[in-house]
């Protein structure tokens, strides 16, 4: 007999009634979780069509889908850059790309960026959660804003190269000043990154000392 019965413990929650949250145009969280993997797979044909690339992309897609909060997405972008670096210059005037290498690079810029941003969003989404479409629209808006800059830079590089290489085709004249500007920019950005990294490290150390709160455990447990 249940004297002073209280709800304790728990049986299988498979058939329990569910709490419903009224959302506007929701999409399943599983779809959002799959998006970064999809974009990783889209990167593969843009980088190369060999078996190793496709296999690696598949493995990376599985990893980024399972653990979107892990550094897999960043590693994928780094690997894509290294593969591009190991190949021919995609922006070389009169290169082996038959004019399509520029489009390949533009596509890579977009897909790599989408991998990063969708993985960032997916790291906050549980498999059984629901996501409003406007959240995806917001992410896409941020991507488009950055892409507008990045693609403009790409176009500028193409224009500058076509102008500077016009006199001496294939010699790469005029690269030095561009390289100096890039190095200067990288140093400035590195200083900013140093500052940001220090802030992040301090935050993480503080969080580690404090330990996760009950609410954080709730979210972490659910995300897996």
């Amino acid at each position: 007999m249940n004297r002073g019965a209280s709800i304790r413990g728990g049986r299988s929650s498979t058939r329990l009634p569910r709490v419903e949250i009224a959302l506007v145009r929701p999409v399943p969280g599983a779809l959002v979780r799959l998006l970064p993997g999809l974009f990783v797979l889209l990167c593969a044909p843009l980088v190369g069509a060999d078996v190793w690339t496709v296999g690696g992309a598949g493995a990376a897609a599985v990893l980024v889908v399972r653990r979107p909060a892990s550094p897999v997405a960043a590693v994928v972008s780094l690997l894509v850059g290294l593969v591009v670096l190991a190949g021919d210059d995609l922006l070389a005037v009169g290169g082996s790309g038959d004019g399509r290498s520029g489009w390949r690079l533009a596509g890579l810029l977009l897909t790599v960026h989408l991998v990063l941003r969708t993985a960032e969003l997916a790291s906050h989404v549980a498999w059984r959660a629901r996501v409003e479409l406007s959240v995806l629209g917001r992410v896409l808006g941020g991507v488009l804003a950055v892409q507008a800059v990045a693609q403009t830079v790409l176009l500028s590089v193409l224009v500058v190269r076509s102008v500077t290489d016009a006199g001496e085709p294939g010699a790469g004249a005029g690269q030095e000043w561009l390289r100096a500007v890039a190095v200067g920019g990288a140093v400035v950005i590195s200083l900013l990154a140093w500052r940001l990294g220090g802030h992040i490290l301090r935050t993480r150390r503080r969080d580690a000392e404090r330990g996760p709160s009950d609410h954080e455990r709730l979210f972490r447990w659910h995300i897996g």
Binding site: A74, S77, L78, V80, G81, L82, V84, L85, D89, L90, L91, L105, L108, L109, V112, H113, L116, V143, V146, Q147, V149, A150, V153, L154, V157, R161, G172, Q175, L178, R179, A182, V183, G185, A186, I189, S190, A193
Partner: peptide, 22 residues
């Protein structure tokens, strides 16, 4: 940043550009 710096140092704007969005 790695892509940007390495691409800049090696004179490969295609690789450097891949680091720009991030």
């Amino acid at each position: 940043l790695v892509l940007l710096v390495v691409g800049a140092l090696l004179g490969r704007p295609d690789a450097a550009l891949l680091g720009v969005p991030a």
